[in-house]
């Protein structure tokens, strides 16, 4: 199997505060990895290190055998490491379509075009692709609505859609179903299952039901390091996980 992401001895400190210490693991293409851990275990920081939003204090990150440790976030995003955010992070005064078009126009390589008005007539394929995506995500009726006037759940959905729209190699989802209703959650889980099989998924999630439904492999972060890196079955039965995770987070 092809190794797509490799993390080698990565640590992160903020000032004197150590968040992550000496993390090492690798991810194969097409794997579905769930990441859990109590609050403050450094899950989001860990994502930030993979996406380049933060630079590690020590260690290296490799993407397809290339050292990308010092690459800024936007370059990694172009390589295909794409993330969604824990808190909705959208362009709220713009319409759903405009949000999506911004993602797609980079993929179509027209971002530096400044002499042509962006409209349906001039960029038909771009608009068609956007409409297809909206259709698939059940957001077609909200196409020209401003994001700020949508419900939280719909915004959450767009957040994930924007990540998927780029056709990434690795998609990092930071608590995709946080704050969603049960039906919305089910819908998202179903959409995640429909993603192409060669897409590598890494999901941070508090909802254990969601994560055990998707993940084929689990990473448990606890106290700055990886406690367990194994199959969901092992994690589910692990007494220590039950004690620290379920003990601190409450039963699911």
């Amino acid at each position: 199997m092809e190794c797509i992401l490799k993390v080698d001895g990565v640590s992160k400190q903020f000032g004197g505060l150590e968040i992550l210490k000496d993390l090492s693991f690798h991810v194969n293409k097409g794997e579905r990895i769930g990441i859990i851990g109590p609050n403050g275990a450094g899950k989001s920081t860990f994502f930030n290190l993979l996406t380049g939003d933060l630079a590690p204090s020590k260690g290296n990150v490799f993407y397809k055998d290339k050292d990308i440790t010092t690459e800024p976030n936007y370059k990694r995003a172009r390589r295909g490491i794409v993330r969604t955010f824990q808190k909705n992070n959208l362009l709220v005064p713009l319409t759903v379509l405009d949000n999506l078009l911004l993602v797609l126009q980079r993929k179509h390589g027209i971002s530096r075009t400044w002499f042509k008005i962006r409209n349906q007539k001039q960029y038909e394929t771009l608009y068609n692709e956007a409409d297809e995506l909206l259709q698939r995500w059940g957001l077609k009726h909200q196409r020209n609505v401003k994001v700020e006037s949508l419900s939280y759940g719909e915004q959450r959905q767009i957040e994930i859609m924007l990540g998927v729209a780029t056709n990434p190699d690795v998609l990092l989802l930071d608590e995709p179903t946080a704050g969603m209703s049960q039906s919305e959650t089910n819908y998202i889980v179903q959409l995640l299952h429909e993603l192409p099989k060669d897409l590598t998924l890494m999901i941070i999630e508090h909802d254990l039901e969601v994560i055990f439904g998707i993940a084929e492999r689990m990473i448990v972060l606890y106290d700055k390091h990886i406690l367990i890196d194994d199959s969901p079955d092992v994690v589910r039965k692990d007494p220590q996980v039950n004690q620290i995770y379920i003990g601190t987070e409450g039963a699911v």
């Binding site: 800024p72 995003a77 172009r78 955010f85 959208l90 362009l91 005064p93 924007l162």
Partner: peptide, 11 residues
């Protein structure tokens, strides 16, 4: 509107 988002889009 949101520079962080644009960066994570690859800009």
């Amino acid at each position: 509107e949101n520079e962080t988002r644009l960066k994570s889009m690859g800009y």
